[in-house]
């Protein structure tokens, strides 16, 4: 269909390496929302690790690469508030002084969206066709929450899932302690913040923890599994795309 927007899927590093199922869930949700999805194979990383480490030159190089790869699409959509916040908020700043790349970065930023915010805010999705029999706590990742204003969108869609009971955390706005390279540079602090977050999850009564960023989820799942917790960790998109029966992050598998 000609009016179906052409969406370039931003395959985030962690999704690509650790959790391809999130990529397929994203494609499924985007197609159900009337998009044509393509996945450029020349993509690598958004460059956020370099940017947040203060290596602006490397971040600029990768930003230019992403701008180029995704230039032809109506939208760039990725299943991560963190990476998409880099495209939306950081690229224009990083390339601001560049007369050629600056405007191109601005243009890309304007077309870049986090998956679930895109579904709700741009495509007007109000509900999904999915069922999940569980008590689900949503972790608001900070870059999505404060960088992109993602708060109600995942709640709206999760609440439309059949059989799903959503458990709100007591302090949903506090960081889980992932913080990119922070989590390996300051492991004890990162671990304490994870424990605080997971204590909140435990008291919420949830049996499943979901979120929009695999960084936070790998970190929280890793801590949960270290503690032997049975709480299942999934990306929000997996539940929305009826892929909630995928083994959770850090859980064993059959094959």
């Amino acid at each position: 269909m000609s009016d179906a927007p052409r969406v370039g899927l931003f395959a985030t590093c962690l999704m690509n390496l650790f959790r391809p199922s999130v990529g397929f869930a994203s494609v499924k949700l985007l197609e159900a929302a009337g998009c044509r999805v393509e996945v450029p194979l020349a993509q690598t990383c958004c460059g956020q690790p370099a940017y947040n480490s203060g290596d602006y030159a490397a971040a600029q190089a990768l930003a230019r690469q992403v701008v180029e790869v995704f230039e032809g699409f109506d939208y760039v959509v990725g299943p991560s508030g963190s990476c998409m916040s880099t495209l939306r908020n950081d690229y224009p700043r990083l390339l601001a002084d560049d007369p050629i790349w600056g405007p191109r970065a601005q243009a890309l930023a304007a077309r870049s969206h986090e998956l679930i915010a895109f579904l709700v805010d741009v495509r007007g999705v109000q509900a999904v066709e999915a069922a999940y029999p569980g008590r689900v706590a949503l972790h608001d990742s900070c870059s999505g929450l404060r960088g992109l204003g993602i708060k109600q969108q995942p709640r709206l869609l999760l609440d439309s899932v059949d059989g799903l009971k959503r458990c709100e955390l007591a302090d949903p706005e506090v960081c889980c302690g992932f913080g990119g390279t922070f989590c390996v540079k300051y492991p004890p602090i990162s671990g304490r913040l994870a424990d605080d977050k997971l204590a909140d999850v435990a008291s919420s009564g949830a049996d499943t923890l979901v979120g929009g960023d695999l960084g936070c989820l790998l970190h929280l799942a890793g801590r949960l599994k270290r503690q032997g917790s049975p709480v299942k960790v999934l990306h929000t998109a997996e539940i929305l795309a009826q892929m909630g029966d995928t083994p959770g992050i850090g859980d064993g598998h059959e094959d």
């Binding site: 690509n16 540079k185 994870a194 799942a221 801590r223 960790v233």
Partner: peptide, 22 residues
């Protein structure tokens, strides 16, 4: 990867990358 595994397990990947599966 001691910085990671001191306090957490590392969840294993699903086995193939998204781009190759795609």
């Amino acid at each position: 990867a001691g910085g990671w595994t001191e306090f957490r397990d590392l969840p294993a990947p699903q086995g193939k990358t998204f781009l190759e599966l795609w």
